[in-house]
Amino acid sequence: MNPITPLTCLLVDDNEMNRLTLEHLIELTPNLKLVASFANAVDCLAFFRQGGQVDIAFLDIEMPLLSGLDLVRILPTPQPDVILVTSHRDFALDAFELRVTDYVVKPVELPRFLQAVERVIKARQTPEALPEAHTPANEQHIFVKVNKKMVRVKFEELLYIEALSDYSVLVLDKQKLIVYNTLKSLEERLPSSSFARVHRSYIVNTRRIDVIEDHMLVFGKHEVPVSKSYQEGFYRQLRRA
């Protein structure tokens, strides 16, 4: 990235004084260019859905109608680097789960603000900034949020994942975990070498399949269907394994 090219950014905060403070901090930062400032997340979402793009989004968390966390979950791709700005520390686990670039607690002072911006710049200069680097090929686990705790899930123990509305159920050898993640968001964090989508509602660990019969996959006492639309791709992936 050319260091003299400013990073475009926007901010969202329902509190006018907080917006003015962030706007001032952005103005004081030479490598930032403010594109838009919104009083609510709904207008910000409309900006992105209409084709708007920025490098960084500074988002308040607690807002009416649509929170900053919910906004991050539904932002269309490509997503900007997200810096969450909040009055509370209670959302740190959610921020970790969503892999935002930074989490800044109000009141925001210039040194801390510049530190957050510098994290974005460094991330964009390293391979870790790439989406596929979220779960490196040599990683053998992911962390998921269960209630208010981050739980390590080892790939070798994960049999399959089932969609449940906005939630997902992770079925492991000895337990089931219900997490507030869509199936799609989890699929992006799993290695394609051992996990496959076999149905609109299921992702399976191909290394843990015991039996395949009549387009049904058997994992011990559990069964998962392979839908017609996924059969060709799934069986092709099995042949390559």
Rank of each mutant, 00 (worst) to 15 (best):
P3F: 13
T5H: 11
L7F: 14
T8N: 02
C9S: 08
C9G: 04
L10N: 03
L10R: 05
L11N: 14
D13H: 06
E16P: 03
M17R: 15
N18Q: 14
R19W: 02
I26D: 00
L28V: 06
T29F: 03
T29S: 08
L32F: 05
L34E: 09
A39F: 10
N40W: 01
N40A: 09
A41Y: 12
C44Y: 00
C44N: 00
F48M: 02
R49M: 13
R49C: 09
Q53D: 10
V54R: 07
V54G: 12
I56E: 02
A57Y: 06
P64C: 07
P64Q: 06
L66V: 01
S67R: 05
S67F: 08
D70W: 00
V72Q: 13
I74A: 07
I74T: 12
T77I: 03
P78Y: 10
Q79N: 07
I83S: 01
I83F: 03
V85G: 04
T86R: 07
H88C: 03
R89W: 03
R89T: 12
D90P: 00
D90C: 05
F91W: 10
L93D: 09
L93H: 09
D94C: 05
L98F: 02
T101A: 13
T101H: 03
D102S: 11
Y103K: 10
V104N: 07
V104W: 07
P107L: 07
L110F: 15
R112I: 10
R112N: 11
L114P: 01
I121P: 01
I121F: 05
K122S: 14
T126W: 04
A129N: 12
E132V: 07
A133F: 08
H134V: 12
T135W: 04
A137P: 06
E139G: 02
H141E: 06
V144E: 04
V146I: 03
R152G: 00
K154T: 10
F155A: 00
E156T: 11
E156L: 10
E157G: 00
E157R: 09
L158C: 03
L159Y: 14
L159H: 08
Y160S: 02
I161H: 01
L164R: 08
S165D: 15
D166T: 12
D166L: 09
D166S: 15
D166E: 15
Y167P: 05
Y167A: 08
S168C: 11
V169G: 04
V171W: 10
Q175G: 04
L177Q: 08
T182R: 03
T182W: 01
K184W: 01
S185K: 10
R189Q: 15
R189C: 11
R189E: 14
L190A: 02
P191L: 00
S193A: 15
V198N: 03
R200W: 05
Y202P: 06
Y202L: 03
V204I: 13
T206G: 09
I209T: 02
V211L: 12
I212S: 11
L217P: 06
F219E: 02
G220H: 05
K221R: 15
K221N: 10
H222M: 00
S227N: 08
K228F: 12
G233P: 04
G233T: 09
F234L: 00
F234A: 01
F234M: 02
L238E: 06
A241E: 11
